[in-house]
């Protein structure tokens, strides 16, 4: 473990030299006075039959890190469409009604930082960089239209009015309950010499797919450097084989399930009958 960590340190410091060759465009940031490098201890998380969640460890180094600076690490999972329904009471029974469709809602969204987010950055910076559960982008295009408000053009207005906030909060609440949305103001630990380590929990219900890991260096409420790296969560081993068969060869899979069940029932009857 220690050897692999020190290897990572070396890798992280080496990566600093080539920080310009970032994997993809960082969300926001001004060109360096400060630079950041980051890597994951594991950039592929495998879901096997004993998978019960995992810990994501992000290592990094920040050049020109000052004591007042803050480091924020955001992990965002694949985006999927989502419907949210509100329960209404009809004849004494709670019935799902009033669906709102969110397009491309993140399935996983965890933020770790060296200090509480509201101390780290201004509201605007948090909103622009989508940091924190209050700022996650959840758009419901079917309920939105753009208007000119108070002389400002292109303002997105929800036809649901303030009610859309309840829907957004419901998404955050439900995902937080499953550990899919999380904020940890102590999740990033500063080490000596501009090095840092971030730990984030990946729950057992984490969706499979490609994740983005963004590391931000905040100074005076604004991001002055960012760095993006990737993470893949994928089923492996038997889990993978079963899932692939179920989706690739559904008929064979269904027949296999029936044959397995029939054999088990027959075997039980044979054993039980003999006794």
């Amino acid at each position: 473990m220690i050897r692999s960590l020190s290897a990572l340190f070396t890798a992280a410091v080496a990566a600093l030299a080539s920080a310009a060759a970032a994997r993809s465009a960082p969300p926001e940031g001004t060109p360096p006075p400060a630079r950041i490098a980051a890597a994951l201890t594991e950039d592929v998380v495998e879901i096997r039959s004993d998978f019960a969640g995992a810990e994501l460890v992000v290592f990094g180094a920040a050049e020109g890190l000052e004591d007042s600076d803050a480091i924020v690490v955001a992990v965002r999972g694949p985006q999927r469409d989502l419907r949210v329904m509100k329960k209404r009471r009809v004849l004494g029974i709670w019935v799902n009604a009033a669906p709102v469709r969110f397009e491309g809602a993140p399935t996983f969204f965890a933020v770790a930082s060296t200090a509480p987010l509201e101390q780290v950055a201004s509201f605007g910076a948090l909103r622009r960089n989508q940091l924190g559960a209050d700022h996650v982008r959840l758009s419901a295009p079917e309920t939105e239209r753009t208007e000119t408000l108070l002389g400002v053009t292109g303002v997105t207005v929800s036809e649901l009015g303030p009610e859309i906030v309840d829907y957004r909060e419901a998404v955050v609440r439900a995902r937080s309950r499953l550990g899919l949305f999380a904020e940890d103001p102590d999740g990033v630990e500063r080490l000596e010499g501009g090095l840092f380590i971030a730990r984030l929990a990946l729950p057992s219900g984490a969706p499979t797919g490609d994740y983005n890991v963004d590391v931000y260096l905040f100074r005076d409420g604004a991001p002055i450097a960012t760095r993006r790296t990737g993470l893949t969560v994928a089923k492996a081993g038997i889990e993978r084989a079963v899932f692939d068969l179920a989706h690739g060869q559904p008929l064979a899979y269904g027949l296999l399930a029936v044959i397995m069940a029939a054999l088990a029932g027959w075997a039980a009857a044979a054993v039980g009958g003999r006794r």
Partner: peptide
Amino acid sequence: DLGAPPPDLYELIEARGP
């Protein structure tokens, strides 16, 4: 359970992804 106040008034229905 049908008649009791639900623990959360909102329910998420996910599109089953790949």
